[in-house]
Design a protein around this nucleic acid. Structure first.
Lengths: 217, 217
DNA sequence: CTAAAAATTTAGGCTTACCTAAATTAATAA
DNA sequence: TTATTAATTTAGGTAAGCCTAAATTTTTAG
């Protein structure tokens, strides 16, 4: 069984890989809030245990073993987020932090019980897919709202959960998962957007638009 | 904030104190499954941080600070047990183990939310009192069934949760919290009891009787 | 193409919390 | 009361994960 620290490394490597970024010592150090030298140490250890492959000075890549372990944690994390949201009525801006620790101590029995109570959900409250027990992850084909052409009508499928304030803001302008909106206007010089939600028109910055993922409708 | 390990020490010291036992290096080592020498180390550290007083070669005693910290953990532990039992329908023989880890990571926000959902319970599923936020603990005036005189009619108030198999056994003979029973006969030579639950008469050993706490009714 | 800058790794250390073995103190039995 | 036994503490170590500073490798700019 990987330690809590190892689990955190694997999870963050998976996230970085998923975003298509190269997984370097420094990007990992940034995610984990840890000195780069410490990351090198751990990476060598994880490589020795075949959780990942390490090309010195180049970066790392999860092995199948590493990917499996990462997905187990992520499954627990997202199920717990779902539970916090659905059963204990936490806001979507609060749940990620609460789940950070629980993901590491949740027993398999607990995982199954919660999955059952929730009715075997496929996505978490931010629209991220909940990995299946067999290691399958449904990939959500959504594109960032910032890429939507003028006039497009779209539906929100996912919101990046990395920043609680962003989530709060998104709620505050009346957006939530599955909500429909249309792009009224794209402002060239600052790349901001004017979107229409229901009958309201709202201006949002690129930063916000880049973190809202949608599908055409 | 005390570390997880410190919390475990404080909790077990509290338990031992509560049972009226002297809290010695070896009794603690036994509870924590740790070598006595390691306990001495930690005890000196905790004494330095004023969580407890240490009389070398004699034993330890929690300070008020230590008692407070212990009760915070125990409150979280018992609330979580209650939640597992009431909301997720875990058996009373499963919950203690599940709560061992969660007690250390449960946020105060989570604690409040659960307390609320459960309707501010006063006792956990084993009949142990849930300490209040202000550090008050209702003491349950119950005596062990093994002390009940022949002919006595009693009600179950608490069952020692230290042993899951005992809890299972107690359930299996039809006993649970608040159930009434009467002592039909006390067998002298092995101190076992014949008790009557509803219309059934059952023989139970001292070991079992010593772990069931009752009040006269 | 090379020199400076940036990223990565190596070296040497630290802290927490554990361990075993040896020394010391306390308890117990003759 | 003293010798033996039991409990406790001290001494010296270990492993996991982190750190800073120095050395090395890679990238980038001129």
């Amino acid at each position: 069984m990987p330690s809590i620290n190892v689990e955190d490394y694997l999870k963050h490597i998976y996230y970085l890989q998923e975003e298509g970024d190269a997984v370097t010592t420094s990007s990992l150090a940034g995610q984990l809030n840890i000195a780069a030298a410490s990351v090198t140490d751990m990476v060598k250890k994880l490589s020795g245990q075949h959780y990942l492959r390490h090309l010195p000075y180049r970066g790392v890549q999860l092995t199948e073993k590493g990917r499996r372990s990462a997905l187990k944690i992520i499954r627990k994390h997202r199920l717990w987020e779902m539970f916090l949201s659905e059963v204990l009525h936490f806001g979507w801006d609060e749940i990620d932090e609460e789940a950070e620790k629980f993901e590491h101590i949740m027993s398999d029995k607990m995982e199954e019980r919660i999955d059952e109570v929730l009715g075997f959900p496929r996505v978490d409250p931010h629209g991220d897919p909940i990995p299946a027990k067999n290691g399958t992850v449904k990939n959500i084909r959504a594109f960032p709202l910032s890429d939507a052409p003028e006039g497009n009508s779209v539906r929100v499928l996912r919101v990046n959960d990395a920043n609680p304030e962003l989530l709060q803001y998104v709620s505050s302008i009346g957006l939530s998962l599955n909500k429909r909106l249309s792009v009224k206007q794209r402002i060239k010089f600052d790349k901001s957007l004017i979107i229409k939600i229901g009958s309201k028109e709202i201006a949002i910055s690129t930063v916000v638009a880049e973190n809202i993922f949608v599908e055409s409708v």
